[in-house]
Structures are given as structure tokens and as C-alpha cells.
Design a protein around this nucleic acid. Structure first.
Lengths: 246, 246
DNA sequence: TCAAAAGTGTTTGGTTTACACCCATGA
DNA sequence: TCATGGGTGTAAACCAAACACTTTTGA
């Protein structure tokens, strides 16, 4: 795939923070840039007749192989010097480069999206500018290009605030999951441990889960039950947030 | 003030939903367009070396006379046909118009900001394209140009969700206010009535208000006490949200 | 057979809800 | 003097937090 700058809107880009949950850890999908070996978020540009959502979803289809990804816009990053904040970006836009790379020397206002995916369904695929595409644990992420660390932080913050209003469990977990898995997800996102018994009682009280007859086989210790989301009830419950207030 | 298109980024605009609270009603600041007499949100364009925040704040300084307005980005509106959704916008971008108006025929991706201001401090001022600038009650707003009704709805929705995380009372009310006033604000934003006594107990339990010795004079009936926000405690309390959770 | 994980239930204390009485003020 | 709005208090219902015992499983 070649990169034709003329079909895109100048000055506007999108960057996506793709979250996955695997082995009780929150992961983010990252790309390693060919020229500098520095890591970056999957991103792209917006075609002249395309919404931002379509652009984000088109790019992520290429990076993950998935259609119909859960995507939410969360913030816009518009510092006029954002691309100059990092030496790697400077090098990327080095005028000595070929014209595809020169495109990066424009000022870009980037719209941030976060995506929630089922980790095991993703096939990480590099793009034109990168040679690797991999999951990294959220707390092991190194320095990224430009302001991408900041973008991830903002995405995480948003995710935490929206935990009670977005179908986060549904999109990050496999269709069938155990109560301890769901609890670990909540604990990871909230950054604190929760009481097993109180968690179970609370989450069940929302009536958003169907308890299945199956249990998770294979693991050591007592086999936990499997659950699935009751999508209809989940959606309804999220409209008012998962718990009260005024 | 003339409108020089060259100094602005193409394809990017900002639109602001300026909220005020007056006589127990939530108000929004609107402009009436010269050519079509249709109403629109205050908005503008982004200079080539300016952040979006700066652009929004510059425009609002012109429309309200206020510096240091509380501003939050809440969403981006990027439908490629958004400006064609409404006959008024078509007319605005009529090629027969002068060059300033022709600028509008570009595709614009608009970043939405909401602003919270102290109603009585605002001096509504029209811009180059409008002849009137006025407050309108949120539930009396007519059809606006382009997708501006949608932008307001999204702003309101965001405001409601952020009520417990943003200093909304502080920015919408005058420095000194009564408990009933604060309650009306909450009731308006939440769209439901609250018990007077329970509201007071709850809000006081947060320790975010200083009770003053003064009472509000002049009104009929028993004179209510005045309060002011204890900014330090308010900010701290908002960091965790105004009430619990997990 | 034991350590670790998972299923289930109870007690306690705090918060929220619902509701009542008295006071001040202008009409 | 009365209607209206505002200040303050209390009992009951509910919910959340803390905590213990039993079961299952592979090592």
C-alpha cells in the first residue's frame, strides 16, 4: 500500500489508543517506526469525503483485521508545536526524505480515539511507516513519538471516568468470561483492589450478566462459572450509569 | 474587524456553546446571521500558530468581553456534509457572495467547546457575520444553522455527565449565591426536582461551600443565607468526583 | 493432602430517603 | 395575618463494607 497525500485533508490526523485485556493486564497496540525505531500509536489521515469515525475505523481495520471496532473520540491535540516536541518526529519530517515522509512536516491537529477490542481477535499489522506492530502493557510503555504518551494518558483517564457509562467490559472481554476476570478488569482500570464478594454482589445486582451453566475448565483450583453480558440490560443500565447519584 | 481567510487553517473550525444561568434558567449565547437571519453558535477559525483552546478563547473574548473563560472541549463534528445539511449554510457559501462568505464553502471539521460563564458579566457582541448576539433559554431554542442544534445537545449531555467532575456551580453562579439558587442549577441540569433538605445536607457534607454571615436581602419571604465556594476544597473534591463509586 | 482459588452469606455501620415543624417576610 | 419560601432535625429503609466458612481443583 502506497501513501498518496493528495487524497487527505491537510492539518488533520487521527490517533487511536487500542486497548486490549490479556493475562490480567491492560495492553495498548503500538507501532515501531521504520526510520527511527521509536514507537507510536496507530494513526492516520482523513480522506476528503470521510468522517473522522470512518477514518479511525478504516485505519484500525488495517492494523487489527477487525471490522466494527468499538471506538470513542476522547480529545483533540492541537499544540502547534506538538510534532516538534520529539526528535523522532523531526527526523520523520526531514526534508531529505521522500515526499511521503515530508508530508509529516505539516502542522497536524490530531483527534484522539480510544478503541476497545477483544485481545485475542486482533492480528497486529504494521503500516507503511512501521516495521512492527505489537501489544504493550500499559505500565511498560516507553517514550513514544510526539505527544503520544500524553494521548494514552488522556485516553486512560477518559476510560476510567466512563467505566460506568460505556460497555467497557463487553468490548474488552471475550464473549464468555469468569467473574474473577471481570473483577480483574475493573481493578486494573480503577487501579485498586476490590473485595471479591462485594464485587460479585454489586455487579450481579445490575442484572447485566447471564450466568452460564458452563465452568471454565483447565485452570488449577476450583472451576469458576462463565458469564456473558446480557446486552439488552447492559445498554439500558449504562444509560443512567451503573449506579445512582442525585 | 475584517475577516482574512489566509491566516487560518483550512478545514478546521471551532464552535462554542456558552452556558449561562439566569432566573433559574439555563441559557445559551447565540448569534443571528446577517444574510439569512438564522441563528448560530459563536464560532470561528484557528490561526496557523494557535492552539484550539486559544482560538476558542479568543473568539469568546470578542463575543462576551470576558477573559479567562472556563472552556472544555467536548466533541468533534466531522460529517463531510454537515454544512450542506441546512439551507442557510448553503446560502452563506453561495459563490455569488464576496470572498469572506465563499470561505464557508470549504469542508469544515468543527471542534465543539462548552463554556461556563457568570451570566451577568457577559456583554453579548455580534461578529462580522452577524447582526445580533443574545442569550436564549435552552428549551426555547429554534432551528439553528448546520448541525448547531446537535452540537448544543451534545454539550448539554456532556455537562450533565460532568456535573460531579467539573466546577460547574462555581463557573455558572455569581461569587455569592444562595442554597436555593445552587439547587435550582442542579435541578435544571439534571432535569428533575430534588428534596430541599437532603440537597442541602449532601452539598454541605462535601465541605465545598463557605457559609457567609450575609443573607440575600430584597426578595420576598425569609431571607436565605449566602454561600461562596471554597475553591480549594471544591477542586480537591472534584478530583474524585463528588461522590463515591467502587 | 494441602495451598490457592472460587462459591456463598451475615453482621455492622453509614448514607439516603422521606417526611414535619418552626421562622421570616412582603403582600 | 397569611401564603410562601427558607432554616433545621429525625426515624426508617437501604446499601456498602468488612469479614468467615465451605467447596473444588491440580500439584
Amino acid at each position: 500500500m502506497y501513501f498518496e497525500t493528495k487524497e487527505f485533508l491537510k492539518h488533520i490526523s487521527i490517533d487511536s489508543v487500542v486497548f486490549g485485556f490479556h493475562e490480567n493486564q491492560l495492553k495498548v497496540l503500538l507501532l515501531r517506526m521504520k526510520k527511527t525505531n521509536e514507537w507510536a500509536l496507530p494513526g492516520g489521515f482523513v480522506k476528503k469525503q470521510e468522517t473522522l469515525e470512518k477514518a479511525a475505523s478504516r485505519v484500525l481495520k488495517e492494523r487489527t483485521g477487525l471490522n466494527d471496532i468499538f471506538l470513542k473520540q476522547f480529545s483533540v491535540f492541537s499544540d502547534p508545536n506538538r510534532s516538534r516536541k520529539n526528535p523522532a518526529a523531526k527526523e520523520l519530517s526531514d526534508p531529505g526524505s521522500n515526499s511521503s515522509f515530508a508530508w509529516f512536516s505539516n502542522r497536524f491537529i490530531s483527534v484522539g480515539y480510544y478503541a476497545l477490542v477483544n485481545f485475542s481477535q486482533v492480528e497486529p499489522t504494521p503500516d507503511f511507516f512501521s516495521d512492527r506492530c505489537e501489544w504493550q502493557s500499559i505500565d511498560e510503555i516507553d517514550r513514544l513519538i510526539i505527544d503520544h504518551n500524553q494521548i494514552i494518558n488522556k485516553a486512560l483517564e477518559t476510560l476510567r471516568l466512563q467505566l460506568n457509562y460505556q460497555p467497557i467490559g463487553y468490548n474488552l472481554l471475550p464473549p464468555k468470561f469468569t467473574m474473577p476476570q471481570l473483577q480483574k478488569l475493573y481493578e486494573t482500570l480503577l487501579g485498586k483492589t476490590l473485595d471479591r464478594r462485594n464485587f460479585q454482589r454489586k455487579i450481579l445486582s445490575y442484572k447485566i450478566l447471564n450466568k452460564l451453566d458452563e465452568r471454565k475448565t483447565g485452570g488449577a483450583h476450583k472451576a469458576p462459572y462463565l458469564y456473558e453480558f446480557n446486552l439488552e440490560n447492559y445498554q439500558k443500565a449504562l444509560q443512567n450509569g451503573l449506579y445512582g447519584g442525585w
